[in-house]
């Protein structure tokens, strides 16, 4: 009888050892290693601080304008790979014609105080915003390019 009990206990202990993963229950009802697993993925976005380490001039210009709170990767895309190996991965220059309207296209759902434009009414028809506006230091009253100046009555 006692032998049967010992065999049963041994079976239970072996089964438990096999079935319960290592580190389970140390910090709660989960495998402790899962925390490290969740930390493991590589960074895809480098973060604005990493950009400023090399590109120190642009963040300084950004600070002066309305875009001071906008992170670099909001417009330039995820650049963790570029930050890790700057010569291997070169970021593309964003096209202001499509990029700017992603935020600034007029919509009734947007907060009233946010600067919005209707591309049909605003601009010189070139489809590009960069001609008049500097995305790194946007001013309230942009300087108009010569073409725009000439069109005015």
């Amino acid at each position: 009888m006692a032998g049967l009990f010992v065999v049963g206990l041994a079976l239970f202990l072996v089964a438990r050892k096999v079935l319960v993963p290592v580190g389970f229950g140390e910090l709660g009802h989960f495998r402790t290693g899962a925390i490290a697993d969740n930390r493991a993925p590589k960074l895809v976005h480098a973060g604005r601080a990493a950009c400023a380490e090399c590109h120190s001039d642009e963040p300084d210009r950004l600070k002066s304008g309305a875009h001071r709170g906008v992170g670099c990767e909001a417009c330039h895309g995820a650049l963790g790979a570029h930050a890790a190996a700057e010569t291997d991965v070169k970021p593309a220059r964003p096209d202001t014609g499509t990029l700017c309207l992603g935020c600034h296209r007029q919509s009734v759902s947007k907060p009233a105080g946010f600067p919005q434009v209707d591309p049909k009414e605003h601009g010189d028809g070139s489809g590009s915003c960069g001609g008049c506006h500097d995305p790194h230091a946007p001013a309230e009253e942009p300087k108009a390019p010569p073409a725009e100046e000439a069109k005015k009555p």
Partner: peptide, 15 residues
């Protein structure tokens, strides 16, 4: 979690 435990903010907040 892989960002905030390294002192960075989340990708959504970053952008």
């Amino acid at each position: 979690y892989h960002r905030i435990t390294k002192g960075l903010t989340t990708a959504c907040c970053e952008t």
